[in-house]
């Protein structure tokens, strides 16, 4: 279990994460929602170990995150960033192979090439594996990075006893609607294999469809949390985002619809 316990973090005087607790459980998908500037990405940095909280602790299986070496941590959690600054012309396959970096020299029995191949197939990029990264569109690049993250937390090699975590920061950015669903289906699939997934989303309906639990952040604080069914209500959305929302049901699926508010 990857746990944040009452963590706070600030840039200068601005507190961006304020006393937030959440747990990423193996086998579950947790969605993190909230308006721009609510502190979602900062919370992610605390969860991934990129920053240390000023107050509170982040623990992995009960041990503080900072007690892990970077490489040991990287074998167990992967982070898909919102944007990437790669300016060198790697091929798609080379970028995906990078996800296996922390696993190198750990377990020789793993067929690294097969893992990379499968990760690429799951992110639907197998058909352009040999193309150059810089020649791809924004959405294609996003899928390549997703494949890299999948390869990094690929279940089944070296340490089955240890749980793994995938942190996705707005993974659906730049993706067409079909690939948005592919992306989250893959996240879901990984969860069924025991990976804990945390995912920053802007689309409530994707959260409703694919997440088990959710946390709604507002101004650095948790405004609502729990299962998506209980926490993600029309009232919470209206309250946090300041838009009118209503919940409708279609073929047993709940769908949140936001309405234009006449001035």
């Amino acid at each position: 279990m990857l746990c944040a316990d009452k963590v706070s973090f600030s840039y200068g005087r601005r507190t961006v994460v304020d006393n937030v607790s959440l747990a990423v459980e193996p086998g579950k998908v947790i969605a993190i929602l909230g308006p721009n500037g609510a502190g979602k990405t900062s919370l992610f940095r605390l969860l991934s170990g990129g920053e240390e909280p000023e107050e509170g602790t982040v623990t992995l299986d009960g041990k503080p995150l900072k007690s892990f070496a970077a490489e040991a941590l990287a074998r167990r959690r992967s982070v898909l960033p919102q944007t990437s600054q790669l300016g060198f012309n790697f091929t798609v396959r080379e970028v995906v192979e990078m996800g296996r970096l922390p696993h190198a020299r750990v377990d020789k029995s793993v067929d690294e090439e097969a893992v990379v191949e499968q990760a690429m197939a799951q992110a639907d990029i197998g058909n352009f594996a040999e193309r150059h990264f810089l020649s791809l569109s924004g959405g294609e690049r996003q899928r390549v990075h997703l494949a890299r993250c999948l390869a990094q937390v690929w279940p089944g090699d070296s340490t089955p006893a240890e749980s793994r975590y995938l942190l996705l920061d707005e993974p659906t950015n730049n993706l067409d609607i079909s690939h948005q669903h592919t992306c989250l289906r893959e996240a879901r699939l990984l969860a069924t294999k025991g990976v804990g997934v945390a995912c920053i989303l802007h689309d409530f309906n994707l959260a409703l469809a694919y997440a088990d639990t959710c946390v709604v952040l507002f101004d650095g604080m948790v405004r609502a949390s729990g299962t998506v069914a209980t926490a993600l209500t029309a009232e919470v959305i209206s309250d946090v985002f300041g838009v009118e929302a209503t919940m409708i049901e279609h073929e047993g699926q709940r769908v949140l619809v936001t309405l234009a508010r006449p001035d």
């Binding site: 990129g50 074998r75 982070v79 960033p81 990437s84 300016g87």
Partner: peptide, 21 residues
């Protein structure tokens, strides 16, 4: 060679990939 490859993605990304930045 390996850590520098990860570095090309940015310092934070390199850390995520297990590099002692």
């Amino acid at each position: 060679g390996r850590p520098l490859n990860a570095f090309l993605f940015g310092e934070l990304e390199a850390y995520h990939l297990g590099v002692d930045v």
